[in-house]
Design a protein around this nucleic acid. Structure first.
Length: 499
RNA sequence: GCGCCUCUAGCUCAACGGCAGAGCAACGGACUCUUAAUCCGCAGGUUUCGGGUUCAAAUCCCGAGGGGCGCACCA
């Protein structure tokens, strides 16, 4: 449904449902000549900034060229005012019969039209800085109406399906995508400056590994083989460490064939990073300094407000074990070695339905997630996860049932996941097999295949290494103070509109 | 996948069992410094789609589709 039936304001357009339609034969009003380029001298904000001290009624004597889309028009007899917006901001255009070329056409321009205009920078008697237009060129005709000029466009379906309309109408939407761009730019710069090498690993995986999500399946014709869009880059990145890259990272898209929610998009962006000779304590430091530094870079502060609550990302972040945090939240002190009946009783008391095949570690994790995680405002590194639920993490130096793993939790949400990497190929094989057995028992659709390429790489020797993944979309959500992941994705995944 | 809510003009919204409307945009016109300019005029609809109940359906019921939120899965 909801195919947008446009109100064509092009009276010569034959069809109102097809913007590319041609004019009716014989209709007058030929398409205006559109130039191939326009020489712009200033962005709107640069004009506003450079002539901020110009007084009402004063003229600068300087001619500028600006270009953008008309956001408001106020034709008024022998004068015509318009607000021109470009990527940087807005500037008023001041047209007049006495000084503007083709004034009649200028005063008939519509909301949404793109024009390039040249003229002197002046401030009107009423105090509005303006370009007093002498020459102008039409750069694009808006054949379709955009939204209400005052209330904009709020229908979320249109905002996401026709993002160009949303971006035109809602400044906030543009700001969020610009914020995202700055975050990613500074993320790269920070990591490069710390000696990390940026790499690109395959998106097409013969075995979907590195996480437990369901993958998207595709098919390679020449090989007549199925491939999986990657659910995580982890195994390839660690193979690069085996190959001698001791500090690597990748920023890229992951694909997980799971449910869609305000916090989940089927494709999302992750930073994943590995550092040799480091353990999980080291990369916790890398993580917190990166996030706090990015906040400083793009927001100018580590103190932000999210959903109306204050949040300070200044380092160092609290570190607490999962057991401690669950005890704080519930009063129950849990341990993977505690008698199963006790664990089941506590699970029942917190309202958790335990499924068959769950070991103590899984139950412990579920209790944590149900009772504790969403209440953590953080930032806090939740550490020391059960080995059972962490097949790629190295066993804890204090005991083999736990692993040296952490999840940074901010505003009740996991922002990432990191650990001391499991480097022992025999243990890794055993853990893969354990996962595969569990998958078979759980009737999982995807057959858990052992990644022999990865095991072979470990056999060549992976030095002590630690790494983490960081959800870039969620980080931008945090910085931008938005609750829906779609706000920070230019074109979020939507159900195809079948009309 | 399940549950609840929602869909009216290009946009933002009324009408909630009794003639489908407004503002903005668009289109035509007026206007010598406007600021969501103002004023006059004109046009715009299979009320998402398909059934049903009723003398009468945008409105009530059933189904389908899109969207939102929650749950599950997952980051």
């Amino acid at each position: 449904m909801s195919t947008w039936n446009p109100g064509s304001r092009c009276t010569a357009c034959a069809s109102s449902t097809n913007a590319t339609s041609t004019r009716e034969p014989g209709m007058s009003e030929p398409e205006p000549d559109i130039p191939y380029r326009f020489e712009r001298s200033h962005e709107a904000s640069a004009v506003v900034e450079a002539w901020s001290s110009l007084g009402p009624g004063e003229e600068s004597g300087v001619t500028v060229g600006v270009a953008g889309r008309l956001m408001l028009t106020r034709p008024q007899g022998r004068f015509a005012f318009a607000e021109l917006r470009d990527n940087s901001g807005s500037i008023q255009l001041f047209g007049g019969r006495a000084w503007t070329a083709d004034f009649e056409a200028f005063s008939k321009l519509s909301l949404g039209d793109w024009i390039g205009a040249r003229g002197e920078v002046v401030r009107t008697r009423r105090g509005e800085l303006s370009v007093k237009v002498s020459q102008w060129e039409l750069l694009a005709v808006a054949r379709r109406n955009f939204g209400d000029k005052w209330r904009g466009v709020s229908d979320v379906e249109m905002r996401y399906r026709q993002r160009e309309v949303d971006l035109w109408a809602n400044e906030r939407s543009r700001q969020l995508l610009q914020l995202r761009s700055r975050v990613v730019q500074r993320m790269r710069e920070r990591l490069w400056s710390q000696g990390f090498v940026e790499v690109e690993t395959p998106l097409l995986h013969p075995v979907a590994g590195g996480a437990t999500a369901r993958p998207f399946v595709t098919h390679h014709n020449a090989f007549d083989s199925d491939f999986f869009l990657r659910i995580a880059p982890e195994l390839y990145l660690k193979r690069l460490v085996v190959g001698g890259f001791d500090k690597v990272f990748e920023i890229g898209r992951m694909f997980r064939n799971e449910g869609v929610s305000p916090r989940h998009n089927p494709e999302f962006t992750m930073l994943e990073l590995y550092q040799a000779y480091a353990d999980y304590r080291d990369t916790m430091t890398v993580f917190e300094e990166l996030v706090a530094g990015l906040a400083q870079d793009v927001l100018g502060t580590t103190q932000l407000s999210y959903g109306g609550r204050e949040l300070d990302l200044a380092t160092p972040w609290r570190r607490a074990t999962m057991t401690e945090l669950v005890a704080d939240a519930t009063g129950y002190t849990l341990h993977v070695r505690m008698p199963r009946p006790d664990l089941l009783r506590i699970a029942g008391e917190v309202g958790l339905e335990v499924e068959e095949g769950w070991g103590a570690g899984k139950i412990l994790l579920e209790i944590y997630e149900k009772t504790t995680e969403t209440a953590l405002w953080g930032p806090v590194f939740v550490t020391d996860y059960p080995a059972e639920v962490s097949p790629l993490a190295r066993r804890h130096r204090d005991g083999p049932e736990l692993v040296e793993r952490y999840e940074p939790v901010v505003a009740g949400r996991e922002l990432g996941n990191g650990f001391s990497e499991l480097i022992d190929p025999d243990d890794q094989r055993a853990r893969f097999e354990e996962q595969a057995a569990k998958a078979r028992a759980g009737d999982e659709e995807e057959s858990a295949v052992i990644d022999e390429d990865y095991l072979r790489a470990l056999e060549y020797g992976l030095p002590p290494t630690s790494g983490f993944g960081l959800g870039v979309d969620r980080l931008v959500m945090l910085f931008g103070d938005v609750a829906n992941i779609r706000e920070v994705i230019a074109f979020p995944t939507l159900r195809p509109d079948r009309g």
